[in-house]
Design a protein around this nucleic acid. Structure first.
Lengths: 215, 215
DNA sequence: TGACAAGGCTAACGCTGTAAGCCATGCTAG
DNA sequence: CTAGCATGGCTTACAGCGTTAGCCTTGTCA
């Protein structure tokens, strides 16, 4: 059971509850006609349940009780269906990470963000892989979505380069874990903590002196 | 023009030239019959020049002047061809990174490793993606290859978890750069440096106190 | 000389995304 | 009320994919 990000919009916090540096959730580009919404929902479900190999136009059509060519009355191509799924996934990920930096627990903000990210990604492996690998047609996404989804990393570190580095670390860890690429017997909890410590120290120090990385 | 890792074996340094903690280059599993070698070479060339979409059994057969079904006299499946390419790529990457930690320049060992890794990966995008994403059938690789290829990260950091975290950072940076997933206008040099600094400090400190990450 | 393995070949299957064109339904303008 | 048109189904079909089955030629060796 996955939350539909489109239904969460009314739960947005008012402006005054935004953290310093935090950015508002963008609007969806447009309402989706029923058939489009059904197709995207089916695509997401089939993808998550049975993997990318199961997501074919004929299969999606089956889920709606129609024939594959009819889908082309609603989508230009299979890539367009996938893009819509990617869009939903990015809203999902943004919701999870924005929530993580607002509700920090005992482990501190940075590890809280990393843990939330990891937990979400591992429980939606196929969705995450689809959303984060391969070319992304930026101009077809709702404006501001990408920025908003990446914003928590900046809020946490207070520095654009550190944010980017931290997110890259998290992404690398997650994809390697999803593909079982870490050496067998790895103690991944410790690795996550090691990364968290490395960036935590630097972020704390960065706040103090305000120096750059170009020396 | 890419170096064939199979021809470099005689350039291995003798044992006494290994750095502390460094591991010896493993042997290849077996000699490849001529047709097999030709096919793998063609696959690598087509992949690097024209992308994964161009690597089809019919296309590879074309490169050898034969028909697609004949390839199945030499390979069990297309995946077997790809696995052989992956094996070569891992030898390549291992060679590059082992060389980087032996010939450190003015920038220090950690940034030297990161820079060498980045440079190689960016100049072989399709090869790198093939070698590092998706499921890897470990049991079909030459024994020790994976360990040897990942060994430089351990040598540089002196700690398995820090090594894994650093490599994940590098991998995340590279794949996001290859797919143009970093926000437009990113100053990636600074981001690489930020990551390098974060891990460098921790590695230096780690050598000192020998504490773990489990607190 | 006969047997056999190696390595080509063609034909074909089931799958994919997708184009072309037909047809029923329902809304809307004259 | 009816003509026209957009919407969204449908069938048929195509090219390309990985792969299988089965045939045939060539070279090697007993």
């Amino acid at each position: 059971m996955t939350t539909d990000p489109r239904t969460l919009e009314h739960e947005l916090p008012p402006d005054e509850e935004l953290l310093p540096g935090e950015v508002r959730r963008p609007d969806h580009r447009s309402e989706r006609p029923k058939r489009v919404a059904q197709t995207v929902a089916a695509a997401r479900k089939v993808l998550e349940d049975e993997g990318p190999g199961a997501v074919t136009m004929r299969r999606l059509a089956d889920e709606l009780g129609i024939r594959a060519p009819s889908l082309y009355k609603h989508f230009e191509s299979k890539a367009a269906v996938e893009l819509a799924v990617i869009e939903d996934a990015m809203f999902d990920i943004g919701d999870v990470t924005h929530r993580a930096i607002r509700e920090i627990g005992a482990m501190g903000p940075l590890l809280s963000l990393l843990t939330a990210y990891r937990t979400y990604c591992l429980s939606h492996p196929n969705l995450y892989r689809l959303a984060t690998s391969g070319h992304l047609p930026r101009e077809s996404l709702p404006p501001g979505l990408e920025d908003w989804a990446g914003n928590p990393w900046f809020v946490i570190t207070g520095d654009p380069h550190l944010a980017q580095a931290l997110w890259s670390f998290a992404h690398g860890m997650v994809v390697l874990e999803l593909d079982d690429r870490h050496p067998p017997g790895s103690e991944l909890e410790s690795t996550w903590r090691a990364g968290a410590v490395a960036f935590e120290r630097l972020a704390a120090q960065k706040q103090g002196d305000g120096s750059g990385w170009d020396a």
